[in-house]
Nucleic acid binder design. Structure first.
Lengths: 358, 358
DNA sequence: TGCCCTTATCGAATCGATTCGATCCGATTC
DNA sequence: GAATCGGATCGAATCGATTCGATAAGGGCA
């Protein structure tokens, strides 16, 4: 009696075929009645939708649809950190925002692929139409190659250029050089650097030539090089990430010795710079009178008021958008070109000439 | 000549069948040679993998695999905001972290479904094995129902309970009541509230009975109720989100009139509380001597030092983990039960008795 | 009336793998 | 030496939809 009223076995979800049968139309017509692009009379569509409602059918199975269509409606976002760490960084959030804005026409979701070591299997096995690599190191080359073989469009932001990956880069080096020159023009000579992590395994440490040589993190290395272009032997400290607290710890270290105290600190991110300023406050060092501080990124740091950080404003949302647009274009068969973005110097109130020598 | 050396038409990706043909084995054996659970001799497996390498085959197509297996290896995360806003909230990040930790055994990726108004189609059309709703309002009921019809396990954190959704809740009301009682015990009588958004459409405004009545945001409403249990007619201000800057703006408004100034402020999140403290600093009001401030969440607010916020520490990571575990269990056919989490009172140095009346 | 063209519907092939049950073969056991 | 056993391999069905080309029915035009 219930041979067609509610599918075969109880508990089994109804399929499009079941709906079609109940509506008395063919399989293909039923398909058309849902999203399809094809002529269907209003009466028929209504009949199909009614049948669907009666059978409690929730619409075509996305899995089957994506197999047949060859599109899954998913764009992968690969980050080389734990989710929590990755998205505490406002720059990454801004990227994500621009990205999701630009891929809106795809009607796609963003699949978060946090590369937590062993589980890089996800990356190769997830069904996605395209992928964005955010700040990824060459360590992922293998996974990336697998995606590439699969013909998946790949876009990288802030990463080591790799084969077949469209890279959207930033003028990390020249921008940092510009800000360093600003400091030199003000008269600074003893400058220190608070750096982003140089490698995937993070630890706090004084900046040493060895550490610098072994670094794999593109962004940090380029910004370091930019600073070195102007202050070749500035000392510094490597942090474990772009957080205020990290900047504070690094600065306390760098400012500890009153005799060898730098007059300016180049922080590789605004969050780090904010931490440097906090540390200076704690130590009773006036910013900018006794210590100039510059950052990088141009993100509004929540609660830094009344300081207006001198920094390099990078077009993060725009970078994300560009990556998104590139993906849309590639999926449409186009061949977008890589773009290089430039940061804009923002003069705030955290830099000034160094204090006169005693 | 290239009838089998590299698939049919140039540009077409090779399929498992092509690999099998080239390796001289059957379709099914080739499948087994990849991840499969079944006996394959080492020699055969090697032959298949070699053929794959030669054809530049990147492994089984995830789309086909997920159709056949009935699992897509994707867990959806639904938030009712833009990505950027959602994840500026450290609590949500912590949830996400706990979640991704707990679902590790599934080897699944997290599909971000930001509900940006019109595009709620994503939610219904994405192929996922389970979904987590984070802070979602009843507005999504329709989409949720669609998922439910599809038989997808659903878990909600911080949301309105809905049919067929397993809810992991927090003692928002009683915890807030506890902290309010702490303030009353200290002698406070003029207390104000800085509230999270009450509705999806956000705007800054004085808290009014109308606004309260129309609210749809579970968390905000419950915390409000908890405060009202102790201070029935406390005034307040509604913000547009859990950000330091929002707390600052709200507090400037609430502290503007020196004659009607509250002696304590209950902020509905730690970030808001941090903003309140900043505002007090700006206005020259001493915390806690002249103004007590309490928060909610127990997140380390970057850069709040030297204040140690009196707050309610909620087990955010643990909530995420619980949701993840529930999903794993449901996918294995189990029937986990809903859990209610409790927050822990943390006494910091931001509360004190009110100043003596002049 | 006859012809052509459009619109609505249908059948069947297809997307690319997984998996169940059957078959085959060499090795062990009595 | 025959019966049995178990591991390796194969065929074929299946997952659930989409889509192309074909067919049929109706409408307009000559």
């Amino acid at each position: 009696m219930n041979d067609e009223s509610n599918g075969r076995s109880p508990g089994a979800r109804p399929t499009l075929a079941a709906v079609a049968r109940r509506a008395g139309v063919s399989n293909s017509t039923a398909s058309l009645a849902f999203g399809g692009a094809g002529p269907v009379s209003d009466a028929t569509r209504e009949r199909v939708l009614t049948a669907a409602r009666e059978l409690n059918y929730a619409g075509p199975d996305p899995r089957a649809r994506s197999l047949r269509r060859g599109r899954s409606g998913i764009v992968g976002v690969v980050v080389e950190e734990r989710v929590r760490d990755a998205f505490r960084d406002p720059i990454k959030l801004a990227l994500l925002d621009g990205l999701s804005e630009a891929i809106a026409p795809l009607d796609a979701g963003l699949l978060l692929l946090a590369d937590t070591g062993a589980a890089s299997a996800h990356i190769e096995d997830a069904s996605m139409d395209a992928a964005v690599l955010i700040g990824c190191s060459p360590r992922l080359d293998e996974s990336v190659a697998a995606l590439w073989r699969r013909g998946i469009p790949l876009v990288a932001i802030e990463g080591e250029p790799a084969d077949g990956v469209l890279v959207f880069s930033l003028d990390n080096r020249s921008a940092t050089r510009a800000v360093a020159e600003h400091l030199r023009a003000l008269g600074h000579e003893r400058v220190a650097i608070v750096a982003l992590p140089l490698e995937r395994v993070r630890r706090r440490a004084r900046l040493t030539p060895e550490l610098e040589a072994e670094g794999t993190s593109n962004t940090a290395i380029e910004r370091l090089a930019g600073a070195r272009d102007v202050f070749p032997d500035a000392g510094g400290f490597v942090t474990t990430g772009s957080f205020v607290e990290e900047g504070r710890l690094a600065a306390r270290e760098l400012l500890a010795d009153p005799d060898a105290r730098p007059t300016a600190i180049i922080a590789q991110s605004d969050l780090l710079a904010a931490g440097v300023i906090r540390a200076a406050e704690e130590l009773g060092i006036a910013v900018p009178a006794e210590l100039s501080v510059v950052g990088f990124d141009g993100v509004r740091v929540d609660g830094l008021w009344p300081y207006d950080l001198t920094t390099l404003v990078q077009p993060a949302v725009e970078k994300g958008r560009a990556a998104g647009r590139a993906i849309v274009e590639m999926l449409a068969g186009g061949h977008p070109v890589a773009l290089a973005f430039t940061s804009e110097f923002h003069l705030g109130n955290t830099t000034a000439p160094p204090p006169p020598l005693p």
